[in-house]
Amino acid sequence: MATENLSLESSLRDAKERLKVDVNVFPLPGIITAILIMLLLNFVSTSTNHHLGLQADIISLSSPQQKSGLIWLAIFPKEDKLIISTDDKIKFELPLVSATLEDLTPLVKYLEKRNLEITTDMTLSQKFNANHTKVTLAVDQALNYYHFRPILLALAKAKITRYAFETIILKENS
């Protein structure tokens, strides 16, 4: 019996050796899968919610729930620059100290463009919502009021009349 098993195993091993195929495409399906997953993750992280990967450390407060402002800016310091990141992943850089009116021009133009797009959409759809033109600002806790003043000026220059500071709602029970 044992001899039979041994011969069967040996013949199987021989057959296996004989029929073995060298597969050169081994990593390809794995690589394709990984690339597809990376593309999907990239899409999800950049397009579904601008809060994902938020770099500004914002304050926690018992404040009212956020309303539907369509323009969103995250403001945070990075080395000697003040970075302003938008909900559509555009980044503006200002000097952390002593920003001038010329430094603000690209941001003002961007805000004017977004404001115009939103008001045009509202006009064409004949549905007015005052909250839509409101700018929501996610301001980093490390910033002082001095750093924020140029942003306030840029909002005023872009003819924006309403803005809001974003907060993380503090759950009082927890």
Binding site: G30, T33, A34, L36, I37, L40, L41, V44, S45, T48, N49, H51, L52, L61, S62, S63, P64, Q65, Q66, K67, G69, K134, T136, L152, L155, A156, I160, T161, R162, Y163, A164, F165, E166, T167, I168, I169
Partner: peptide
């Protein structure tokens, strides 16, 4: 690999949908 990746993506999607409920605002005027 595909199932793990899809689960991570699905988790990220669900997280991104629910995350907005945690944010509040302090509104001001110009």
């Amino acid at each position: 690999l595909s199932i793990t990746g899809l689960l991570i993506t699905l988790g990220l999607c669900l997280y991104s949908v629910t995350i907005s409920r945690n944010f509040g605002e302090v509104s001001l005027d110009i």
